[in-house]
Amino acid sequence: MLERVFQKTSRMLMYLGGAGLMLMMLNVTLDVFLKAVFNFPIQGTVEISSYYYMVAVVLLPLAFVEYEDSNINVDLIYNLLPALAQTICRFVAYALTVAVLSAVAWRTGIDAVHSFQIGEVVMGSREVIVWPARCILPFSFALAAFASLLKAVQLFRGEDSRQTPSRADAS
């Protein structure tokens, strides 16, 4: 039940990141067009792209990526290990991931609160308020930590599907 809700949520957030992607494409394209034709750039394009669209594209899909096991890893030695050792490795990996992502979520959470309190802005041709973007960091890292926690619990219960990870089409 909880897993179903989580899967739905993380997928929805992933597509929300996709919406950020499309908005960035349109905003930058329009900015180039207006600059070239009317000498009228859209003020704040750089700041909005960097601090809003990119934060959405990079961070909102993080829980989805973590749950789908799409983060980049090296499974050379892992593949040579016997089944039990593989299970232990996976468990350790999930536990460390939960620990690191929680720590990052906690620290960036402190920053988000601080940023909200002072009403943080960034400089540029226009001042852009950035505390809402700051808040996406702890939220996304915490959700990704939760994704790993779920995977660890599934593994512990022997429910881990062990699907071959769909590697990110990166590089």
Binding site: V58, V65, N71
Partner: peptide
């Protein structure tokens, strides 16, 4: 389009995380 968007954000997210 949805497939292209999904592939893009998943790849971006994992590249940036690394």
């Amino acid at each position: 389009l949805a497939v292209a968007i999904k592939q893009t954000v998943v790849a971006t997210s994992s590249i940036f995380f690394l």
